[in-house]
Each structure stands twice: as structure tokens, then as C-alpha cells.
Design a protein around this nucleic acid. Structure first.
Length: 465
DNA sequence: TAGCACTTTGG
DNA sequence: CAAAGTGCT
């Protein structure tokens, strides 16, 4: 009896519940992964993310092959084609048990139900595991038994849960038999072939080196420096997390180990909170599936009349809004497939509050460009910025991009790097160049003061009905 | 149930 | 330092 591990968003051999379970079945184990370019296109996956996954598949296939587990990678079109292909693999190899780790967005859940039903007809047992979060979805609830909709109380309960429950990562399974020779990897689908430089080193081992390296060298500075885009103080682990090359449990475990060397490190505590943010938004997506169907977390905000995404949206995407910090960030995104988290909030607020353009437009653009594009986090962040999402969002949370720029890029280093037109401006004026700007750099496409006021009024008008 | 918390701004 | 909304305990 052969067991099959269906890899999806869990591209690692260590701490992989589905893989570990399959290895305990006692028989031969195979693995599979489906490249679904049409589905990925529909989900706005970026070339940066797809290419990262593609490079990674070679190392994953080798790691499995060394353990005697052959990997089949097939290119099909959509999720439903992947379900058909899964059935074929099961027939071809006489598979009796299929193991996979759950995903929570609606299309993924529909795919998994279809797979379960189809395989059941052929007498194949399907086993699924909770894997995406540290605290399993459904485990962190209010005293009333409801899901949390606000981060801070969630994080308190999440911390307690992670301290009281076992969330140790699983070790990588040992070899099951003689190594096999790794099969060839299909080419990157054409739609995702745009040339983008690799953002991080490839492979699970590289991810773990990055994790321990960050905690050792940067953990301490994290709290003070993480908000400054010109300082490389963030972990840059998100591309690994987004595709399951690293798990949240592994991050938490490593953070705890680092804390033993440096007890009370506020930097590492702060970073653990970021792991909680990731869990929070996955829990939100699980409990409120509408957020993965292009709908607002707060339904009443669907009544807002966003401005059509015309030339101002193009200016935002191109980094030509005339707001230096916004333009620097948008150029960083386009060129590297990554943007500093502080600037994700600044650019998202600028799009949704100052330009008053629908958060869904920005959400899609980020997904189309980020190497770490991950629906729960990206959608959660966008809806938070747009005030359509979680957290009580009093209107005074509208960022002023110039103020943010002065606070978090005080000497303009980050702006100068990404907006060379402004390289010669002094630190005082670079945040808001005004009439002294070089001719090649645009004037602001919107007035910050009046647009802020208009956005606040639009939100206030929602309450009146 | 009243008090607390919240990735802030503009005066 | 006031503006001033809402979830949670």
C-alpha cells in the first residue's frame, strides 16, 4: 500500500505533518506537486513568488529523493485539473492513502473537497492536517467562544495557547529506503517568466540559516529598528513563510531558543508578535471566508464609492505620485518583489484614503509583485489599512505619508536610493519637495489634507444610515 | 460594566 | 492633548 503526500503550500521536509504521517504509514511513500498557472494567474501570484517556488522545487525534490521518496511535478491548468491529475497519479501508482496539509481560502477548500470526494469513490483514504498556523485555526477564541476580530486580545490568548500547548516543530523524517534519482522539474510557466532577481537564497536549509542568522544578529535590534526602511532590520523570512518553506512553529521555536541566550530580549518578543499577526490573519480568513472572496471584513464598507482606478492608480503603481516615500516604496516593490512592512501600510493608506481607490486594486497589485504574497497576510494588511478590516479603526489612524516619511526615513536615505531624481535634495525638504523639486519629479497628484478629510467624511457617512 | 487598548494626527 | 470608535474582559 503506497502513501502519497500532496504538497501545496508546505514546501518543506521538516515540520510537515502530512509528510511525517505518510512516512509512518509503513509502506512506500510518493510525493506530488501541481503547477497550476491558470489558477495562480487568477490568484494574482507574482513571477517573483512562482520563480522562488520553482527554484525551491528542485531542492525539495532532491531532499525527498534522498529519503527514497519520488516526487511527481505536473503542470496542469487549474485546481480542478490538479484534482484530476491527483486521481490519475493514485491509479498509476496504486496509492491507497493521500495526505495533505489544509489550506483555508475558498478555492483551496473547494479543491480539497473535490479531491476528497473523488478519491473516496476510488477507495482512497484522504487524511488532512492543520499546518498553516502555530495555534490551529479554531483553537484561539474569546471567552464567549467567538473568533477574535481584534489583534491585541487575540495575541494575548495566542501567547497563552502557545505556552500551554505543544507546538514543537516535527523533525524531518529519516530515509525510508534507498535514494531515488530526482525527476526533472517542468519549466516555469510562460505567464510568470518575467525576469526578476532572486530575493532570498533557495532551499529549506538556506531558510533555516536565514532564521537563525536573523535571531542571532538582528533579534536584539528588531524592536528599535524594524520600522526604518533604510536599516536592514527585518527578518526577510516572509518569502519562505508564504510558500511554507518555513513554518510559523519553526520560527517560534527558534525564537524561544534565541531567548534562552538572551532572556527578556524585547526585540525577539516583538518579533514573536509578528508570528502572532500571521496566525491572526489566517484565523480571520478561516472564520470569515468572505475575505478570500474579494469581500470586505466589515460589510457596511461595501457601500463606499471608491474612485475608479484611472491615471492616479497608474501613477501609484509606477511610483510617480509626487509623494517621495510612496514612490520610493512602490519602486522597491516593482523592482525587488518586496516592500518594507512600514511602507506597505503607508502606500496602502495613501491609495485607499488619499486617492480613495478600492483596496482590492492595491491588494491585487501587491500580490502581482510580491515574492512573499500570501492571501491571509496581504488581504489582512490591506483591509486594515483601508479601514474595511479587523481592529477598531478610529479615523485618527489615517497616516500622513509625509509625517511617516520624516519619522521613519529621517535623513531620506531610503528615498534617495529609490528615487534618484531627488538624490540632491537636503534631508529637510526631500520628504515634501514642493516647488524646489527637480523638473523630472512630479508634483503631488493629490492634496493630502483635503483628500484625508474627504475619506474621513466618506467613512462617517456610512454610519448615518 | 466601566475601563483599557489601539502600527496616529494636527493644532 | 484632544479627537472619539469599538471589541473585549
Amino acid at each position: 500500500m503506497t502513501s502519497l503526500v500532496w504538497f501545496r503550500n508546505d514546501l518543506r521536509v521538516a515540520d510537515n505533518p502530512a509528510l511525517t504521517a505518510a512516512c509512518h504509514d509503513g509502506g512506500p511513500v510518493r510525493a506530488c506537486f501541481f503547477i497550476t498557472p491558470d489558477q495562480w494567474q487568477a490568484h494574482d501570484w507574482s513571477p517573483a513568488r512562482v520563480q522562488l517556488i520553482h527554484r525551491h522545487l528542485a531542492t525539495l525534490t532532491s531532499a525527498l529523493a534522498e529519503r527514497g521518496i519520488p516526487m511527481d511535478i505536473r503542470t496542469v491548468h487549474t485546481f480542478s485539473n490538479s484534482v484530476e491529475a491527483l486521481g490519475e497519479l493514485c491509479r498509476q501508482h496504486g496509492v491507497s492513502r493521500v495526505h495533505f496539509n489544509e489550506e483555508y481560502a475558498v478555492n483551496e477548500r473547494r479543491r480539497d473537497r473535490a479531491a476528497r470526494d473523488q478519491l473516496a469513490e476510488h477507495g482512497v483514504t484522504v487524511l488532512k492536517y492543520r499546518d498553516q498556523t502555530v495555534a490551529p485555526v479554531g483553537s484561539v477564541k474569546t471567552q464567549q467562544g467567538d473568533p477574535y476580530t481584534v489583534f491585541t486580545p487575540f495575541s494575548k490568548r495566542w501567547r497563552a495557547w502557545t505556552e500551554q500547548n505543544d507546538c514543537q516543530p516535527l523533525p524531518a523524517p529519516g530515509p525510508l529506503g534507498e535514494p531515488v534519482s530526482p525527476a526533472a522539474i517542468p519549466a516555469v510557466p510562460e505567464d510568470f517568466a518575467r525576469d526578476v532577481p532572486p530575493l532570498v537564497d533557495t532551499g529549506e536549509e538556506a531558510a533555516h540559516r536565514a532564521l537563525t542568522g536573523f535571531l542571532k544578529d538582528g533579534g536584539d535590534r528588531y524592536k528599535e529598528e524594524r520600522d526604518f526602511p533604510a536599516k536592514p532590520a527585518t527578518s526577510l523570512l516572509s518569502p519562505y513563510l508564504a510558500s511554507g518553506i518555513l513554518s510559523g512553529r519553526q520560527c517560534l521555536q527558534a525564537a524561544r531558543t534565541a531567548m534562552m541566550d538572551d532572556p527578556g530580549s524585547e526585540g525577539i518578543q516583538t518579533w514573536i508578535n509578528e508570528i502572532a499577526w500571521r496566525d491572526f490573519y489566517i484565523h480571520i480568513l478561516y472564520h470569515f471566508p468572505r475575505v478570500s472572496r474579494h469581500q470586505a471584513f466589515k460589510p457596511d464598507t461595501e457601500a463606499l464609492s471608491w474612485h475608479p482606478a484611472g491615471p492616479l492608480f497608474e501613477a501609484w503603481k509606477a511610483g510617480k505620485t509626487g509623494i517621495p516615500i510612496v514612490d520610493a516604496a512602490m519602486r522597491q516593490l516593482r523592482e525587488t518583489g518586496w516592500m518594507h512592512n512600514r511602507l506597505r501600510m503607508v502606500t496602502a493608506m495613501f491609495l485607499t484614503k488619499n486617492l480613495f481607490i478600492d483596496w482590492r486594486e492595491g491588494e491585487a497589485w501587491f500580490m502581482q509583485n510580491l515574492a512573499d504574497g500570501y492571501l491571509p497576510s496581504n488581504n489582512g494588511g490591506w483591509q486594515w489599512s483601508a479601514s474595511t478590516g479587523t481592529d477598531a479603526a478610529p479615523y485618527f489612524r489615517v497616516f500622513n505619508p509625509v509625517t511617516q516619511s520624516q519619522r521613519f526615513d529621517p535623513d531620506g536615505t531610503f528615498i534617495r536610493y529609490w528615487v534618484p531624481e531627488l538624490r540632491d535634495m537636503d534631508s529637510k525638504r526631500i520628504h515634501q519637495p514642493g516647488d524646489g523639486r527637480p523638473v523630472r519629479y512630479p508634483a503631488p497628484v493629490v492634496d493630502l489634507k483635503t483628500s484625508r478629510k474627504a475619506a474621513i467624511e466618506a467613512f462617517q457617512a456610512l454610519k448615518k444610515d
